[in-house]
Simulated scan of single mutants.
Amino acid sequence: MKKRQLGSCVTFFPQPTTLIASCDDEGQCNLMTASWAGIISKTPPTMAISLNQARKTYENIVQSGCFSVNMVPASLAVEADFCGLKSGRDLDKSEVTGLVLEKASHIEAPLVQSCPLNVECRCIGEYPLGDYRLIMGEILEIHAADDAFDADGKMDARIFDPLVYLGGIREYWNLGEKVAQAYQDGLKLTPRK
């Protein structure tokens, strides 16, 4: 396959579209869209998000020590895009978008009710990266949409319908369909001699 060099940039996809929820010292909550988010450790369960240090969300996390990461379904693409374009210093994004915030189980930061997967995190550290900060959060609880599970507890990922961001080309997409079973289908390959 012929390839083109793009240089040092942030074109890598897909990236999850998430809404980061946080609160300041006065209990004012903020939502921010972030695609630089992901699991970085299984033991202990840890998530990381990368935020510009000038953001209201970063300020809130420093003050409160917690945040939630809310997986955005494809049906909320417009609302998520709005939350990435406007500052929480200027307006209440949940009010403008109609996104309902609900109380989390273990942290002060809220969860986004219409997001089918919510992760409660307690900030355990940060690492400076230029104007950005890599914020690491211990996962205290994960909330998953009940309708994603059958009677036997098996999860149907199609219910989540995650919105992904294609960094570099500035587009949102959904995932499409399952193509393989992880930790299983790769075992069908035999080593080449």
Rank of each mutant, 00 (worst) to 15 (best):
K103L: 09
A104V: 08
A104E: 10
S105N: 15
S105Y: 15
S105V: 15
H106D: 09
I107T: 08
I107C: 05
I107G: 07
I107L: 08
I107A: 04
E108I: 00
E108G: 00
E108K: 06
A109G: 14
A109I: 11
A109V: 13
A109K: 13
P110T: 01
P110D: 02
P110K: 01
L111A: 06
L111W: 08
V112D: 07
Q113L: 13
Q113H: 12
S114L: 04
S114H: 01
S114T: 08
S114E: 09
S114W: 00
C115V: 14
C115Y: 12
C115N: 13
P116F: 04
P116Y: 06
P116I: 02
P116M: 03
P116L: 05
L117D: 01
L117E: 00
L117I: 06
L117T: 05
L117W: 00
N118F: 10
N118S: 15
V119L: 07
V119D: 06
E120R: 10
E120W: 08
E120G: 09
E120Y: 06
C121V: 03
C121F: 02
C121E: 02
C121K: 03
C121R: 01
C121T: 02
R122Q: 08
R122M: 02
C123H: 03
C123N: 03
C123K: 01
I124P: 05
I124H: 09
I124G: 07
I124A: 05
G125M: 04
G125P: 02
E126H: 12
E126L: 14
Y127E: 09
Y127A: 07
Y127K: 07
Y127M: 10
P128L: 15
P128V: 14
P128N: 14
P128C: 14
L129M: 10
L129P: 03
L129W: 04
L129Q: 10
L129V: 12
L129T: 08
G130E: 04
G130H: 06
G130A: 08
G130D: 06
D131W: 08
Y132L: 01
Y132D: 01
Y132P: 00
Y132E: 00
R133N: 01
R133H: 03
R133I: 02
L134M: 08
I135G: 02
I135P: 01
I135A: 04
I135L: 09
G137Y: 00
G137N: 02
E138V: 13
E138I: 12
I139Y: 04
I139N: 04
I139W: 07
I139S: 06
I139P: 06
L140E: 12
L140Q: 12
L140G: 11
L140Y: 10
L140I: 06
E141M: 03
E141A: 10
I142M: 15
I142N: 11
I142G: 12
H143Y: 11
H143N: 14
H143Q: 15
A144E: 03
A144R: 03
A145G: 05
A145F: 01
A145R: 09
